[in-house]
Amino acid sequence: MYINKDTKVVGKLIVLVPYREEHVLKYHEWMKSTELQLLTASEPLSLEEEYAMQKSWLMDENKCTFIILDKEKYEATGNEVEAMIGDTNLFFANAEDRICAEAEIMIAEEWARGRRCGWEAMLHMFIYGIDYLGVKQYVVKISYINTASVNMFRNMGFVEISRSNVFQEITFSKIVDSTWITWIKMQLGNYEVKVRPQ
């Protein structure tokens, strides 16, 4: 999404940066993992297709994507690629009316799992969507086998609305209200949204 192409979100554990060309090679390596393909319901792409996807997503007003960096590693190295641990996305059915967004998150690096990086990154993405894109409702679709994500979203206040035995996934929803926004901001503490000047 063009709106976030110069945006950096800095939290306690993570930093969110736009998905750029220099991230593609590492992302492509991640997506060779059959485990990640299964958990994210993704099909493997060729490297050329991955580069094309990155370019299209940059301009697509229906998709907002951030790469998740481990903040400690990023501050130590100054290298985004070395610090990459996953990604988070919002998908909109209608670019003109961004009331409802489908959210996704992936922590690809095993060493970064179980450290609440995914929790923090997802909450930052929710607040970004609310404050900058006008999102009023979030939906997530999670594989039956992804119990960590199921538990995470339930703990974030999402409620189950349906199950698909065909796709082996559960759909959860959360309506945005002032109580939830306050709760998210309490969870996050101090954070900063930086927009690089044009």
Results as ranks from 00 to 15, higher is better:
45 L>S: 13
74 Y>I: 05
53 M>L: 14
68 I>Q: 02
57 W>T: 00
96 E>F: 02
29 E>L: 13
64 C>D: 07
142 I>Q: 03
44 P>Q: 08
168 Q>T: 07
157 G>S: 05
122 M>L: 15
165 N>Q: 09
125 M>W: 01
84 M>G: 03
197 P>C: 00
132 Y>I: 00
24 V>E: 08
112 A>K: 03
173 S>T: 13
169 E>W: 02
196 R>V: 01
138 Y>E: 11
88 T>M: 02
193 V>I: 15
34 T>E: 15
13 L>S: 07
163 R>K: 15
183 W>D: 03
113 R>T: 07
82 E>W: 06
108 A>K: 07
170 I>V: 15
71 K>C: 02
186 M>W: 00
23 H>E: 12
34 T>R: 10
169 E>C: 11
185 K>P: 02
93 A>G: 10
151 N>E: 12
125 M>T: 15
29 E>H: 13
143 S>G: 14
115 R>V: 04
170 I>R: 03
24 V>K: 10
177 D>R: 04
123 L>M: 12
41 A>G: 11
89 N>F: 01
174 K>N: 11
56 S>D: 09
162 S>H: 01
41 A>E: 14
184 I>C: 15
26 K>E: 06
187 Q>A: 06
35 E>H: 11
146 N>W: 05
173 S>Q: 13
86 G>K: 04
16 L>Q: 06
159 V>C: 05
22 E>A: 03
61 E>A: 11
165 N>S: 08
187 Q>F: 02
21 E>S: 14
112 A>L: 03
143 S>D: 12
182 T>L: 14
185 K>V: 00
67 I>H: 03
159 V>A: 12
77 T>C: 11
15 V>D: 02
23 H>T: 01
197 P>Y: 13
158 F>L: 14
71 K>M: 10
163 R>T: 15
146 N>Y: 05
35 E>Y: 12
124 H>S: 07
139 V>M: 10
145 I>C: 11
67 I>Y: 08
109 E>M: 00
164 S>G: 03
100 C>E: 10
184 I>A: 12
83 A>T: 05
36 L>M: 11
91 F>Q: 07
31 M>F: 13
161 I>Y: 02
170 I>A: 03
125 M>L: 15
110 E>H: 06
130 I>M: 09
159 V>F: 07
31 M>Y: 13
37 Q>V: 08
9 V>W: 02
25 L>D: 11
31 M>I: 12
60 D>P: 05
122 M>N: 05
58 L>A: 10
39 L>G: 04
112 A>W: 08
177 D>W: 05
27 Y>I: 01
105 I>Y: 02
36 L>Q: 06
196 R>K: 12
104 E>V: 04
103 A>K: 04
161 I>M: 10
